[in-house]
Nucleic acid binder design. Structure first.
Length: 399
RNA sequence: GAGGGUGUAGCUCAGCUGGUAGAGCGGGGGACUGUGGAUCCCCGUGUCGCGGGUUCAAGUCCCGUCACCCUCCCCA
């Protein structure tokens, strides 16, 4: 058997790649407009970084990481997401000491050992942005505004949902209240939720199972338990979003799969495919938990493949010129191709053999806008016959 | 990790109750050595995903395995 690519690790090519590039470049340009600075992070980190940041009991850490040991026996991981690495870099370069706040973005492959399905691979790409050092809700508003603008620019139909998960003051009491509530609903919960109702009760709110949804419909809401400062933060954020005309929807059942989130969380779900394309939130304790100074922070990540899947149309490539040498004119024809390319034209030099007819047929198949016909007459006169492949018009021109 | 579907030529697929492989499209060549998208003619051995089993005989039945697609879990 010929060697195949590894499951979930795919070649990206053709139109799919064009969509991918488009999605990526739009997101990048929106981030650059907001003056986020790019950082190129390594793909491998110590496994401990993810265990400490994402949370020991999450599925990502428990069963979805690509783990391996280096030659000295240290446990390494292919990164399953980007925030942990960004925080590590923020601390390692001591950005907290040299600027009042820091805005970073990263792009690159992420790895999760999951079952592949539509819009989901073991190697996939994310672009993420992180804002370190601003506690005020204006930072939340700006991050959500970036998300809104990139979705708008890519013409992706989706709604931004927001919620608040509270802080270490108000979340524990809420968690307990929710646990108590769920204990009374046990007979309505699915098997997965029975497993997580004590371990990670917030996740039950997010379950797609009908009976769970129903059981949870009158569950206590985090918003009702928010402490004064969280409540203030959340209502200011909503006010700001309204002021800058960013449509959003509150979803009291919105939670995140990663442990580090606090206060604001948000997500954009595509209307057509029903998959999450962007997700993010605030993580005010993570920097400190990873050994840094107390630093409020927040960010988001987009799945580039998922975005690409939803793109309406892709830009057409530049108009193609096909240079057709005909007869003993090779040196001249190559010179013409070089000249056209130096003018920035997209040029294919035809290596196809056969008569002019066959070569024009070839140019046609390539989708050429112009055929640059070079026979011995043209070579002698120092011109080319430029044929417009749509209209069929042809004239001799100097290049 | 659980469930369902699929796997035959480059692509899309046909192949009925087992008798050793076909079509369309694409591609190549020609009709046609200076003008395309048309027409006509010619060109298909591909480990029938892989391994094993049943059988005189397996693309076709059975078991296993791998991959892909979809759903769930989880997540971007």
């Amino acid at each position: 058997m010929a060697i195949q690519s590894v499951r979930g690790f795919n070649d990206l090519l053709g139109e799919e790649l064009a969509r991918f590039r488009r999605a990526s470049s739009v997101v990048r340009s929106v981030l650059e407009r907001h003056n986020f600075e790019e950082i190129l992070l390594p793909v491998v980190e110590y496994a401990e970084l993810f265990q400490r940041s994402i949370g020991e009991i999450t599925d990502i850490v428990q069963k979805e990481m690509f783990l391996f040991k280096d030659r000295k026996g240290r446990l390494l991981a292919l990164r399953p997401e980007g925030t942990a690495g960004a925080v590590r870099a923020f601390l390692e370069h001591k950005f907290y000491a040299e600027r009042p706040y820091t805005k970073l973005f990263y792009e690159g492959p992420m790895f999760r050992y999951e079952r592949p399905q539509s819009g989901r691979y073991r190697q996939f790409h994310q672009i993420g942005a992180e804002l370190f050092g601003v506690a005020e809700p204006s930072a939340d508003a700006e991050i959500i505004s970036v998300v809104y603008e990139l979705l708008k620019e890519l013409e992706i139909d989706s709604v931004i949902e927001i919620n608040s998960l509270g802080c270490k003051e108000c979340r524990p009491p809420y968690r307990e209240a929710l646990k108590e509530f769920l204990a009374q609903k046990e007979e309505h919960l699915c098997k997965d939720c029975l497993g997580r109702k004590d371990r990670n009760p917030l996740r039950v709110l997010d379950c797609k199972e009908k009976s769970c949804k129903l059981a949870v419909s009158d569950a206590p809401k985090m918003v009702d338990y928010l402490c004064d400062s969280c409540k203030e933060h959340y209502s200011q954020l909503k006010e700001l979003l309204t002021h800058i005309n960013i449509p959003f929807r509150e979803n009291f059942n919105l939670v995140r799969g990663l442990d580090y989130y606090t206060r604001t969380v948000f997500e954009a779900v595509s209307d057509s495919l029903g998959i999450t394309v962007v997700a993010g939130g605030r993580y005010d304790y993570l920097v400190q938990e990873l050994g840094g100074p107390p630093t409020p922070a927040l960010g988001f990540a987009v799945g580039v493949e998922r975005l690409a899947l939803l793109l309406k149309d892709i830009p057409k490539p530049k108009e193609l010129y096909v240079v057709i040498p005909f007869g003993d004119v090779l040196p001249y024809a190559l010179k013409v191709a070089k000249a056209l390319r130096s003018k920035g034209k997209r040029v294919e030099f035809s290596y196809r053999r056969g008569g002019l007819r066959k070569q024009l047929d070839f140019a046609n198949r390539l989708g050429a806008k112009y055929a640059v016909i070079i026979g011995e007459d043209e070579a002698k006169e120092g011109v080319v016959s430029l044929k417009d492949m749509d209209s069929g018009e042809q004239k001799k021109v100097k290049i």
